[in-house]
Design a protein around this nucleic acid. Structure first.
Lengths: 225, 225
DNA sequence: CTCAACAGTCTTGTATACAAGATTGGTGCG
DNA sequence: CGCACCAATCTTGTATACAAGACTGTTGAG
């Protein structure tokens, strides 16, 4: 499904999409340099690229951190995705013949992940659907833009205690694919709009994000001396 | 109209939007470092950021160059703009009250630039309209995305001998503002779609971009010894 | 005269050294 | 005991040195 990342950037992005990197996680240059077996220079370059893509940010002389979108930014990110994804479905009718089959297969994978219950691959697959759909339209700019936006909304979901029902999302995806199979782009656009709104509405954007979420989780079973 | 840029990136972007930087222009690190009075390190950082934004690219050990979009990339860039800008107009009805007035003033500026005939500020203003419109909707993600896409399409226009009629473009802009003033977002979206198509159709994307365009221009009057 | 090989120069690629600020842990005063 | 202050340590910010490759101009053979 997802090819293994060759660059530091891809590696970080895919870790976020897969839920392995949480918002607020510190990414020390020295640490990363050791992990990837490269010098700090390369790590810095990668971090700066990710920064311009809005994935990480730097706190002066403290380190690089996975972004923690504010409620406002969260809303804007979802809004941007809605505008672009529905816009694509409404304006572009250029899906190649095999796209629907591929998307159907993807939804099938989602279903399986739902049953096996592996939360990481599930999160990853649910985000990947949108990226694959964008990719199928063949516009690399839109694909790249949506990849970054999806990474951000994935972070948002991690931050605002999403009660997102993965099964419902997958059902939406299946519905969109069905409509596309019928050539009903307008219907697909409508359903996509509802879908993204549903995901957004499943968030508790009023709740301030818990800065200690990570720690709390680690310490909940019982801390050692 | 356009506040003076404080970073190297903004400076390059605004030079492109204003038509002062042509596609293919070489941006040497040492040269830029001297111009901006900073070290090569900072210049490299800025260039790498611009690279991830698709504005410049690096040719190994030869230097940084303003991108020269291929015909395929050109079409994709216009398509992306169409999807996003019409999507915004269709989905978002969140223009603040004073937005229309500001946009009207902007179109008025365009008109003046048309008469005075200053080609640089004209190009800049025509692109700025779209950026300002995006900005008015208040979604920073979409604004940033459109700024970069607009920079790219500006480069495309320089590269593919656009016969774009600046006056017609400005008329389109005026029309869009009028529709927005009436709250007719759907109509504005339709006109925006036509407008961007018109600009794209004004290009000769079949013609291979002339890699010597810059030189030819310089040498046309008669070369000195 | 043409062309291939080569030396010199220029430019980026990468690592490393050091400066500057932030954090942490300790110490002493009240 | 609590708190402010201070030293030690860690981390990024920035510049610089040097390596590696690309380009240019020259030179010499055919």
């Amino acid at each position: 499904m997802t090819q293994l990342p060759d660059s530091i950037e891809d590696s970080v992005i895919s870790a976020i999409l897969g839920g392995r990197l949480r918002p607020g996680t510190r990414l020390g240059e020295a640490k990363l340099a050791e992990v990837y077996g490269v010098s700090r220079t390369r790590v810095r370059e990668a971090m700066m690229r990710l920064e311009t893509r809005g994935i990480v940010h730097v706190s002066a002389r403290r380190g690089w951190f996975v972004v923690e979108p504010s409620a406002t930014e969260a809303r804007a990110a979802f809004q941007a995705r809605r505008v672009i994804e529905t816009g694509m479905l409404r304006d572009l009718h250029t899906l190649p013949g095999d796209a629907v089959a591929h998307l159907r297969a993807h939804v099938e994978e989602e279903r399986e992940a739902l049953h096996t219950g592996h939360v990481g691959s599930r999160t990853c697959l649910l985000g990947d659907f949108h990226i694959h759909l964008a990719h199928a339209f063949g516009n690399p700019f839109l694909t790249d833009i949506l990849r970054d936006l999806t990474a951000r909304t994935t972070l948002v979901s991690m931050l605002y205690q999403s009660d997102q029902d993965a099964a419902a999302s997958s059902d939406d995806h299946a519905g969109i694919v069905t409509l596309l199979a019928d050539g009903d782009y307008a219907g697909a656009a409508r359903l996509m709009d509802e879908h993204i709104r549903r995901v957004e509405d499943g968030l508790d954007l009023a709740a301030a994000p818990d800065p200690l979420a990570g720690l709390r989780e680690i310490l909940s079973p019982g801390a050692p001396a």
